[in-house]
Amino acid sequence: MKRQITVGQELPPLIKGPISHVDLVKYAGASGDFNPIHTVESFAKEVGLGGVIAHGMLTMAYVGQLLTDFAGNEADLLDFSVRFRAMVRPGDTITCLGTITKVEPVASGLLASIQVSAQTQNGEVAVKGSAVLRFDQGEVDVK
């Protein structure tokens, strides 16, 4: 069955967390980003952050998962960019959201432009951005 893609359609939300200190240490190891503001509480306090903060790229990765979960095997991620707007801390739960803003038929299929965001349990927007998915011809219907 073909998937329907509609302007205004919301992607199924992705909820991650609560973020733990162990998550930050694991991400530091996976990414190679060992900046102590992400893993050493005393250092993060000393530099005025009030405690460790999650890697911005970890929050972006969660939004990337939202997109790839939605795309499945039927689409390619062509473009993805975000702006980091607020810090994420251990204990925060992140909800990733997306809304299709434009659908454009092209020779190779269909382009779907998507506005994305990630927000904390308090509604604070940590990441905001956009993405473009290309769905293969014959996999989708436009409504």
Results as ranks from 00 to 15, higher is better:
Gly72Cys: 02
Arg89Trp: 02
Val106Pro: 01
Val25Asp: 00
Asn35Met: 11
Val40Leu: 14
Arg89Glu: 06
Val63Glu: 01
Met60Cys: 09
Gly64Phe: 05
Pro13Ala: 00
Asn73His: 13
Ser20Thr: 15
His21Tyr: 12
His55Gly: 11
Val22Pro: 08
Leu97Thr: 03
Tyr27Gln: 10
Pro90Val: 02
Lys26Gln: 14
Pro90Met: 02
Gly29Leu: 11
Ala61Lys: 08
Asn73Ala: 10
Val125Thr: 10
Ile100Leu: 06
His55Cys: 13
Val25Thr: 08
Asp33Val: 11
Leu11Gln: 13
Ser31Pro: 08
Glu139His: 10
Val22Ile: 15
Val106Met: 01
His38Asp: 08
Glu10Gln: 15
Ala61Arg: 08
Leu66His: 01
Ala107His: 04
Val127Gln: 11
Asp141His: 02
Gly72Ser: 01
Ser31Thr: 07
Gly56Trp: 06
Pro90His: 09
Lys2Trp: 09
Thr6Asp: 07
Arg3Pro: 08
Leu67Met: 07
Pro105Gly: 02
Ala44Asp: 10
Gly138Tyr: 12
Glu41Asp: 13
Val47Ile: 15
Val22Trp: 14
Thr6Pro: 02
Ile114Ala: 05
Ile100Gly: 05
Lys128Pro: 00
Val125Asp: 06
Leu111His: 13
Asp23Met: 04
Gln119His: 09
Glu74Cys: 01
Gly32Lys: 10
Gln137Ser: 15
Glu10Asn: 15
Ala71Arg: 10
Ser130Cys: 06
Gly51Ile: 06
Gly56Ala: 01
Gly17Met: 02
Lys26Arg: 15
Asn35Gly: 08
Pro90Glu: 11
Val7Trp: 00
Arg83Tyr: 05
Met57Ile: 04
Gln119Asp: 05
Tyr27Phe: 13
Gln121Val: 00
Arg134Leu: 15
Ala28Ile: 03
Phe34Gln: 09
Gln65Val: 12
Val125Glu: 06
Asn73Leu: 10
Ser108Cys: 02
Val106Asp: 05
Pro36Trp: 02
Gly17Lys: 06
Thr93Ser: 09
Val7Gln: 07
Val7Thr: 10
Val7Lys: 04
Leu97Asp: 01
Ala107Pro: 01
Asp79Glu: 15
Lys26Trp: 13
Ala30Gly: 12
Leu49Asp: 08
Met87Gln: 15
Leu78His: 12
Glu46Gln: 14
Thr68Tyr: 13
Val25Cys: 01
Glu104Asp: 15
Ala71Ser: 09
Ala112Phe: 02
Ala86Met: 08
Val142Asp: 08
Ile19Cys: 04
Ile19Gln: 06
Gln4Asp: 15
Leu49Phe: 13
Leu49Ile: 13
Thr95Glu: 07
Lys16Gln: 14
Ala112Arg: 04
Leu24His: 05
Ser117Ala: 07
Val103Phe: 04
Phe43Tyr: 14
Asp92Asn: 04
Ile53Val: 13
Val22Lys: 14
Arg85Pro: 03
Ala44Glu: 11
Asp76Ser: 08
Met1Ala: 12
Gly50Leu: 05
Gly109Thr: 00
Cys96Pro: 05
Thr93Pro: 08
Leu111Asp: 06
Val106Asn: 00
Tyr27Gly: 12
Leu97Ile: 03
Gly32Ala: 14
